[in-house]
């Protein structure tokens, strides 16, 4: 016997699939934005905050890195209501996604901050800038520039990872696929289309990160060279 691939009934649902892809995209964008900010804040606290704060952040990072995202998601969506925190699927999904990316981003940005030579902070001090401005210009921005590639590829992983929230019935790309396949019985074709859409999103976002990096850091380098 041979199986005939038929995409007709799948492509008839292209609108829904594109809607799903749009949801995936904005969820991914929100996750990347909030997760990166969380990571940067926690990385700063981790490198220059009080001891207790550092230990809490270490604990958080270790939990994120050493448990699966699916379990984190289930704990937040199914577990939290039993202590009175009731969340809509989309809220639980975003919370879990940001929680997850935040952990990785903290670790990445911390490594960047620690790789910046302490000598540069002293150099800034002697110019008489205020402490925070020194810190920002001499440590944070160079650190971010250094870890930008790692942060970008982690962000692409986070974008792809949003597919997991289909498991708590958030209607994003994968969930739309699940629905279509149970209606059309064309499961393989559905997931091929889904996969192609994800590939498109992944390549597009890699391209976007590359452009953003180019714009953000080459401009800074020009300014730095003039100063």
């Amino acid at each position: 016997m041979s199986y005939q691939l038929q995409f007709g009934s799948v492509l008839a649902n292209l609108d829904e699939l594109l809607d799903g892809a749009a949801t995936t995209l904005w969820m991914g964008a929100a996750t990347i934005l909030l997760g990166s900010v969380l990571g940067i804040v926690l990385a700063i606290l981790r490198t220059s905050g009080p001891a207790l704060c550092r230990r809490l952040i270490d604990g958080y990072v270790e939990i994120v890195r050493n448990t699966p995202f699916l379990v984190q998601l289930f704990f937040i969506f199914f577990g939290l209501p039993s202590i009175g925190i009731r969340l809509l699927p989309i809220e639980a999904a975003l919370l879990a996604l940001v929680f997850n990316l935040g952990g990785y981003a903290t670790e990445i940005v911390r490594a960047g901050i620690e790789s910046i030579h302490p000598g540069q902070i002293e150099a800034g001090l002697s110019l008489g800038l205020s402490r925070w401005r020194i810190y920002r210009h001499v440590v944070i921005v160079p650190a971010l520039e250094r870890v930008y590639p790692a942060l970008s590829s982690q962000s692409v992983l986070a974008l792809l990872g949003t597919s997991v929230v289909s498991q708590i019935s958030v209607v994003e790309l994968t969930a739309v696929g699940n629905t279509i396949q149970s209606a059309t019985y064309r499961a393989f074709e559905v997931y091929i289309v889904i996969t192609v859409l994800y590939l498109g999103l992944a390549f597009a976002s890699r391209g976007a990160f590359w452009l953003i990096g180019l714009a953000a850091f080459s401009r800074r380098r020009r300014l730095g060279a003039r100063a």
Partner: peptide, 23 residues
């Protein structure tokens, strides 16, 4: 590039239904 550009979840579904097609 391709594997790193698709979610593992989608790969799992593809694998599951793809093997099914092979009979």
């Amino acid at each position: 590039e391709v594997i790193q550009g698709i979610p593992l979840l989608a790969l799992l579904f593809l694998s599951y239904y793809g093997i099914g097609i092979l009979g």
